[in-house]
C-alpha cells in the first residue's frame, strides 16, 4: 500500500465548496436554531467567492444543505433571472451538482432575499433567507452585547415604543420590510427585508425557514408549524401592503404582491413581483396545462 492509495484524490474544491468542518459547524448551529426558534445563533462565517453583504449568509446555509439531488431556486427581488440570482444558482450547480429551477414547486431549497414565493411551500422544502441585518433591536440599542441581554430578558418594550411613536407621529405604522415579529412567543426576529405581505407566510408554515446573516455571523430559524406574530397593538390591525386590488399588466392576475412600474405619463403599471409565478400564469392563460400550487393569499387575502 502506498501513501497515494490512502490519500483522497485531488479535487479543486470540496463538495459544496465549504470544507466538511465548516458544514458540520453550520449544521450544528442550524439544529440549535431550530431547537430555539427565533434565537440568533452565532457562527463562524466563512469566506465564499462573493462579497459580504451580498447574501453570503444565505449562500453558506444553502451550501451546507446541498446534496446532489437538491433542486435549487434563487430569488432576488422576487425575480429568478437577475444577474445575482442567476450567478448564485449556477454556483450551486457547479459546486454541488444541484439541479437549477425557477419553479417554486420543483425546488427543494429556495434561497431568497426580498420575497417569499406566492405559492405555498411544503414540508419537504426549505426556505433560506439572506439577512443583511439580523438584529431587530439595532434601532433602539446600538450596543449589540446589551441587545443580546435584552433578548435574554425578552425586554422588547422599546421595540413596542418605536411602533407607539410611529402611530403618534404619523397615525400609522411606517415600518415596511423587516417587520419585527415574535417567534414562538419568545424571541423577536427581524424577518429579513421581506415585505409585510410575506411575514404572514411564516406563521404556522409547513416549511422550515433558515435565516442567515453572513456579515453579522448570525443564523436563526422558524421551524414548521411555529407561531410568527408581527408586533401589533390590539386596536391597530396589522396591515399588509395595499396590493389586494392591483392587477398584473402582463398576466392579468389580481391579488398578489406587485412591482410598481412608473410610466412616462405619471401613472403606474403593476407586474407580479414573483416572476416565475407570473410566467406560469401567462402560460396558463395561453392554454398550456401548467400546474400552479395553492397560494398563501387568495383574492388578495390570507385567512
Amino acid at each position: 500500500m502506498t501513501l497515494k492509495d490512502l490519500t483522497k484524490p485531488w479535487a479543486a474544491f470540496n463538495y459544496g465548496f465549504l470544507d466538511e468542518s465548516a458544514k458540520r459547524e453550520l449544521r450544528r448551529k442550524m439544529l440549535k436554531a431550530v431547537a430555539v426558534p427565533g434565537y440568533q445563533v452565532p457562527y463562524a462565517s466563512r469566506e465564499v467567492p462573493m462579497a459580504r453583504g451580498w447574501g453570503t449568509g444565505g449562500l453558506q446555509a444553502t451550501l451546507t444543505l446541498l446534496k446532489p439531488t437538491s433542486v435549487v431556486k434563487v430569488i432576488d427581488q422576487g425575480a429568478d433571472d437577475s444577474v445575482n440570482a442567476v450567478s448564485i444558482r449556477k454556483f450551486f450547480a457547479r459546486v454541488g451538482g444541484a439541479v437549477e429551477t425557477e419553479d417554486t414547486q420543483k425546488a427543494t431549497i429556495i434561497q431568497s432575499r426580498h420575497r417569499i414565493p406566492e405559492e405555498k411551500l411544503r414540508e419537504d422544502q426549505i426556505l433560506v433567507l439572506q439577512v443583511p441585518d439580523p438584529e431587530p433591536l439595532r434601532a433602539v440599542q446600538p450596543d449589540m452585547s446589551i441587545a443580546r441581554e435584552m433578548h435574554g430578558d425578552a425586554d422588547y418594550g422599546q421595540l413596542w415604543l418605536v411602533l407607539y411613536e410611529q402611530l403618534v407621529k404619523s397615525g400609522r405604522i411606517i415600518q415596511g420590510s423587516s417587520y419585527p415579529s415574535m417567534v414562538n412567543g419568545r424571541y423577536v426576529i427581524s424577518p429579513s427585508p421581506i415585505p409585510r405581505w410575506d411575514v404572514k407566510k411564516l406563521h404556522q408554515a409547513d416549511h422550515l425557514t433558515i435565516l442567515s446573516a453572513g456579515r453579522e455571523k448570525r443564523i436563526y430559524a422558524v421551524p414548521p408549524y411555529t407561531n410568527v406574530e408581527p408586533l401589533v397593538f390590539d386596536d391597530v390591525p396589522y396591515r399588509v401592503e395595499d396590493h389586494q386590488d392591483k392587477t398584473c399588466y402582463r398576466s392579468n392576475v389580481t391579488g398578489f404582491f406587485m412591482n410598481e412600474l412608473p410610466q412616462d405619463d405619471g401613472s403606474s403599471r403593476h407586474e407580479l413581483s414573483d416572476s416565475h409565478f407570473g410566467v406560469k400564469q401567462i402560460r396558463r392563460n395561453e392554454g398550456e396545462a401548467v400546474e400552479i400550487a395553492k397560494t398563501w393569499y387568495n383574492n388578495g387575502r390570507m385567512d
Binding site: 418594550g157 422599546q158 415604543l161 407607539y164 403618534v168 401589533v232 397593538f233 390590539d234 391597530v236
Partner: peptide, 27 residues
C-alpha cells in the same frame, strides 16, 4: 428616561413592559 423618545412614550413604555397592547389605552 430614554432621552431620545417622546415623553408620553417614556410613560407608555412602562405600560408596554407590563403587557399593555392597546394603543388608545396606552395613549
Amino acid at each position: 428616561l430614554l432621552m431620545g423618545h417622546t415623553s408620553s412614550g417614556n410613560v407608555a413604555e412602562r405600560l408596554l413592559i407590563a403587557g399593555n397592547r392597546n394603543f388608545a389605552d396606552l395613549r
